Amino acid sequence: MKILSCCVFLLVLSGALGNAGRDLSSGGSIDDSINIDGKGVTIGITVAKFLAGLLPESCSKVIIAIIDVLAPVVDTEVDYFELIKEDVKQVVGDYINDHNMQQLEIYKSDLAVLLNRYNEAPTESSTYPDKNTVANSLSTSMMANRYLVEAVERPQSMILHYTDIASIHILVLKDVAETYSNEVLSRWWVDLDEQLAHYIDYAHKLQNRIVDWRNDMVTCVFKPASSVCVDWEWAGTTCYDTWTVDDPVVHVRDTCMTLHNDDRCNDHCQAYQMHMNREVAQWIWEYLGKAMKQWKKLKITSSAMANFASRSYKP
């Protein structure tokens, strides 16, 4: 039985240490560098690519790239957080949670320090805090501060920040779980599994909330031709019915005008909402959906590993 258990353990562990396998289902290919520019490539997208095996760099190099975004060594006119704020405005317009974003701007410096400490910490040491110790501090800090991205007020505007913060937390937990899984599985797998469950659950709620909110913000008003005009149609008066869509998020007012009782504009509002929903769904997929896809794949591994770790744990 010991031999069988050992074999199962090694098979599961080798799968986990191989990142989740290279995901080429969408025609992806391995990138040669890490370029988190905030103009389409976010921290969340970068971590997702790493988890999918589409980046040749080590976890340490990914963490360094993230640190450079959170706390640039040199002054630059490019502000990553300002760029992703502009990205999210494509979907939420001016309905931004400025307070939480400002607080997150302050916290990012502390997060960069913790990430750097983790990245430079030894695996084992009797004189310095090791990765196990620093990972605990980092994870505790992120759980205490994630209310900034899991906002009560206008949570839809925090979607990119949420994906980034969740991705950083997941990346570190996966790395520390792998680091301390040698002959015995690390209990960090349990932490990773629990946090993945939390982030995936909230991400689903956030997706639905954004779609519902965008639809609720759109109004459509039908204005039939006036009764006075209709009364004079027999005399050759031309009367019009109008359908007007108002979308304050993107500052759109779109009116369709048609002859009275003509049905050509009847689907005007529905057509606008269908188009808007497609754009919102595509945006969510690019910035959150692709990341969540990798979280779910990792969750399959973490659940199995956490199960092994829990059974072998002896307090």
Rank of each mutant, 00 (worst) to 15 (best):
S157R: 11
E183I: 00
A225C: 04
L196F: 05
I170C: 02
I159P: 08
Y162G: 08
M142V: 04
S186C: 03
S226H: 10
I159A: 14
N182L: 14
L171W: 03
D193W: 03
V228P: 02
S167M: 09
A197F: 02
L192P: 05
C220M: 08
R187H: 10
R146D: 11
A144Y: 00
V228F: 13
I168F: 00
S227D: 11
M143R: 15
Y202D: 07
S157P: 14
E194H: 10
E194N: 11
I200A: 09
A225G: 05
Q207F: 04
K223V: 12
C220E: 10
D216G: 14
R146V: 01
W213S: 09
L196Q: 06
D175M: 00
H161W: 12
A151R: 02
V221D: 14
C229V: 02
K223F: 04
S186W: 01
V190D: 05
L160V: 12
D175C: 03
Y199E: 13
I165G: 07
R214W: 00
Q207R: 08
S141A: 11
H169K: 12
S226D: 13
V149L: 14
N208F: 00
S141Y: 01
M158G: 13
D216A: 09
L196P: 07
W189D: 01
Y202S: 09
D216T: 02
T163N: 12
T219M: 09
M142R: 04
I200N: 11
V228H: 10
A177Q: 00
R187T: 15
Q156G: 13
E150P: 15
L192C: 04
D191F: 12
V184Q: 06
W188D: 09
A151V: 02
D191K: 10
D175F: 05
H161E: 15
E194A: 12
V218Q: 09
M158P: 14
M142H: 01
D216K: 10
Q207N: 10
I210E: 11
D164R: 04
A225K: 05
R187W: 07
E183H: 03
H161F: 14
K223S: 13
C220Q: 10
P224R: 05
Q156L: 14
P155K: 12
V221N: 13
A197G: 07
M217E: 14
V218L: 12
I159E: 10
A197E: 09
T163D: 12
W189R: 01
A225I: 01
V152L: 15
P155N: 13
A144K: 06
T179F: 05
D191Y: 10
I170T: 07
A225Q: 02
I200D: 09
V152T: 15
F222T: 07
E150R: 15
L196G: 07
Y162L: 08
D201C: 07
